[in-house]
Amino acid sequence: MAKVMGEIIIDIERCKGCELCFDACPKEAIQLSDTINSKGYQFAIKVNDLCNGCASCALVCPDAVITVYRKVDKAKRPVKVIEIED
């Protein structure tokens, strides 16, 4: 199977910190920041590299602040190891 890599970019200035994307993400890749944006909201940030670009977070984001990218890397096919017994 080809390796699927995802990436999200969050517009933190528009994020209202509602946290709805946290539960939507199957990889638990989003958490709340420690800092606030200029409106005073703590915002969503990406906390790990497990994103596979499923776009679940973006679908539930009320303010459409998340842009999702997905890349299928065909070169990185895992090599099948065949053990030969003799």
């Binding site: 890599m5 995802g6 990436e7 970019i9 670009g53 776009a55 973006a58 679908l59 998340i66 842009t67 999702v68 990218y69 997905r70 890349k71």
Partner: peptide, 10 residues
């Protein structure tokens, strides 16, 4: 990954 051709949601 963050290239225009890879956008799945905007």
């Amino acid at each position: 990954i963050c290239l225009a051709e890879n956008v799945v949601y905007v």
